[in-house]
């Protein structure tokens, strides 16, 4: 166990943690910038980008399994028009998606909303993850740690 902790300690020395944090913040800030596009007057570029993004997250009500963006059905084209109209009015992404959900139901949303019925979608993978990783590491550590005889004539890096 101790070498493991020592290794962790070395890897997370204050300097390296600081560097990593700074870099992460540096690269994440761009995301927050694009999320912050919820101001009310979009430039043409922003409008296009946001409109495409919304259309890709919504499901075409008339075709089998295509996003509004990919679908060529009439209703999909109308709804894409709607999205851009609403962006012209200065509505935010969330408002537009909420409008579509109110009109067509939860089915139109490719990213299901988080509520008691869909909680399992996130909880199960996260739970599985922690359960198996912790279980796996515990299992490895629990194995009788008799000194392991290495085949000396063998290349252990192979």
């Amino acid at each position: 166990m101790t070498p493991f902790y020592r290794m962790l300690h070395r890897m997370f020395s204050p300097i390296s943690v600081a560097i990593i944090t700074v870099l992460l913040i540096f690269s994440v800030q761009n995301v927050t910038a694009s999320e912050a596009l919820s101001h009310r007057n979009y430039s043409a570029d922003e409008k296009r980008q946001l409109g495409f993004e919304i259309a890709q997250e919504l499901r075409c009500p008339a075709s089998d399994n295509r996003s509004l963006f990919d679908s060529e059905t009439q209703i999909a084209n109308e709804l894409k028009g709607h999205i851009f109209q609403k962006l012209d009015q200065g509505q935010s992404k969330q408002e537009i998606i909420d409008f579509m959900v109110a009109r067509f139901g939860e089915r139109i949303r490719y990213q299901p909303s988080l509520h008691s019925g869909t909680l399992a979608l996130w909880l199960i993978p996260i739970g599985l993850f922690f359960f198996t990783i912790i279980g796996g590491i515990a299992w490895i550590i629990k194995q009788p740690q008799t000194p392991i005889k290495l085949h000396l004539n063998e290349n252990e890096y192979e």
Binding site: Q56, E57, R59, S67, G105, E106, R107, I108, R109, Y110, Q111, P112, G117, T118, A120, L121, I124, P125
Partner: peptide, 23 residues
């Protein structure tokens, strides 16, 4: 789980949802 959740969900609640690329 994500692929077949909508089926289970529809059977239990009767509501259709979609789970797609963003998830």
């Amino acid at each position: 789980l994500g692929s077949y959740y909508p089926i289970i969900y529809r059977v239990i609640t009767g509501v259709t949802i979609s789970v797609g690329a963003p998830y």
